[in-house]
Design a protein around this nucleic acid. Sequence first.
DNA 1: AATGAATGAGTCTTCATTCAT
DNA 2: GATGAATGAAGACTCATTCAT
Lengths: 208, 208, 208, 208
Amino acid sequence: MPRLTANARSEVRERLLRAAATRFAADGFEGANINTISLQAGLAKGTVYNYFSSKEELFGEVIRSASRRAVELWSRAPAGGSLEECLRALAAADVRVLREQEPFMKVLVREAMSFRPETYPMILEHLAPFLEAVGGCLGRAVGGGRLRDDLPPEELALVFVGMLALFYIQHWGSDGAWPVLDDVPELVVTLFLDGARGPAARASGNVQ
Amino acid sequence: MPRLTANARSEVRERLLRAAATRFAADGFEGANINTISLQAGLAKGTVYNYFSSKEELFGEVIRSASRRAVELWSRAPAGGSLEECLRALAAADVRVLREQEPFMKVLVREAMSFRPETYPMILEHLAPFLEAVGGCLGRAVGGGRLRDDLPPEELALVFVGMLALFYIQHWGSDGAWPVLDDVPELVVTLFLDGARGPAARASGNVQ
Amino acid sequence: MPRLTANARSEVRERLLRAAATRFAADGFEGANINTISLQAGLAKGTVYNYFSSKEELFGEVIRSASRRAVELWSRAPAGGSLEECLRALAAADVRVLREQEPFMKVLVREAMSFRPETYPMILEHLAPFLEAVGGCLGRAVGGGRLRDDLPPEELALVFVGMLALFYIQHWGSDGAWPVLDDVPELVVTLFLDGARGPAARASGNVQ
Amino acid sequence: MPRLTANARSEVRERLLRAAATRFAADGFEGANINTISLQAGLAKGTVYNYFSSKEELFGEVIRSASRRAVELWSRAPAGGSLEECLRALAAADVRVLREQEPFMKVLVREAMSFRPETYPMILEHLAPFLEAVGGCLGRAVGGGRLRDDLPPEELALVFVGMLALFYIQHWGSDGAWPVLDDVPELVVTLFLDGARGPAARASGNVQ
DNA sequence: AATGAATGAGTCTTCATTCAT
DNA sequence: GATGAATGAAGACTCATTCAT
């Protein structure tokens, strides 16, 4: 008879993952330290190894867990409507994940941006569902001539996701000064679709 | 009287910085290793400490040196002409720096994207000249209504620089598959200015 | 009233000792691992400590139990007859113990041969009954001039037991190739008594 | 220009090997501890790793170094003369190695007797020259009918070497009480050749 | 009685840094 | 100035042991 119920066990696991996410986000993979992680989770060093077989695996689980939750929220986002609405819904879902799992998302973004050969593929793999959702919105818009046709939707999707990450980084780097998270979906959608010239410029500037 | 001419001394220093940039770019700050760096520079471990007082300082100098060279090239870029031309010239200058100093730039981008509190301000500080140059191009365009006015030029400049970095990351992450470096200036300028809808959509899709 | 019958309790104890012997034999004292031992016995780690107070004690009990069984079998060996018969019977009994309790015997031999100050005396102590039996065979033969008299029977007994161990080691080390266990009693007795020159050489070679 | 001459460097290496041999002999491979070894050599922990890449390698070098010296002395032993003289010379050479390199030899014997699959082959490999020398003495004697012919010389050589080890173990286990090292060559040769019955028994006891 | 989660001392190993030559 | 041997702090990981259930 196990001493801990499956539930209690997984609660401890969660606590460890949360602590690990915080430390990995703050210090990076190399900089983080198992002892500190365990203490932050209110446990002793050795306990970490009852749940994860190595620092590497712990790190992988942090990433996996981050993207699992993200995919879940993304998939609930209503993907219909106009192009703007579709993208805005996805961006909003992503921001919601960010708020809910900030440390996890920091790790995710940080790793995605560090292009380390070891983790880049893993990140991309877990990003795939979101990229596909974005690609779906874009694909439906291509037909109507509402999108530039010199770039395939997949590459545009990468740019969209990249811009999201960009604003997060800017948000964290400026200590929340700009942009405010609430503004990110609107910001990313309009800049992604209309660029710096904006929709206004579009209407006026082209008559001549 | 020094036993080495200032010239010889600074030549060794350069060699060390170059080796350090390569290693830091490949392995990150923690992962890089003084011994390997010195060997790659054709010197012995101890010699590093005749030129830099610590690993931290060496890292700082790598970043400083990366941005010094970048600023130099940026400042030579002709900043006049139309908005497109101005931005394209700056982006092209940046790509030139990238080619010339790839390891240094990798370190720079990687650190900028890792938003570590220790280095983020340093990076921003060294980015300032470039940001100002971009801001200059944009500022001159704001007046003529050729730019959206819901965002100040400084923030737009950050987005522009961020998008550049985004394409570099994508370039490195895809092992050079997409985008090719030569395409980056055009790509970043058009996406930055016109967004995913593109200039074509602008002419056609909006008249009605 | 105990919740386990004495019988059930001692059955579990046996299972633990057997598992421990296997692991200690394969991995040595330091290399063996309580968790593995308990699992091999079909129990959980903690249970080991309901039966033995520490790894050290468990190890001691393995040795004690090995020699207890050996002594028992040795004592049943018919000790009469000629010198050869007497020694052969003892050696055969020893080989029988070996077959029956191979892991235990491996631990025993391994420890005896490692002359660790902590265990050497314990081993010798448990070997005593067998040494005495061998000494008995030899003592009866000394009188008749059928044994060299430059060495006391006790030391000869040590040599006999050592040679037995030697053949076991050789057997294990060669993965059973040579000698086969069945041959050991004959082999050890003839080599011990007649040496490399053998009984044939004795008859012929000395006439000249 | 290296800070240490090759000589000084190899002197430190020797010191480390000597310390390691002592610790490995006393505690076994697992039981020994790099920190203790380095301190016993008058150095700090880290220094060990300037000379050996791991504990495993250090251990291997201890064994290699033990057998190198032994082979050297063995090869100088005059291998001619009668069978007795030949074997006695080899045994005497081995005892000389033992005296000179007691800790090393303890490791060697201990490992040889522990029949660990990892090290057993290594030991045998390094023992080969000695086994061959012994085999040489025996081979030359086989022809004249001065040796039993029911066992091939190679197996007899193994028994000879094993008996030597046996007496060493007995010597160490009895704290030097019996046998005295000086007596070992004579002891091992006569017991190996004539067995417990001895040469006297041969002349008298067998005629009838 | 059995369990297995938690613990933390102890181990190997790495590596920035110092400094005698 | 360059060198590389020596150092020891720090970190990942193992495992005997404890103890609540």
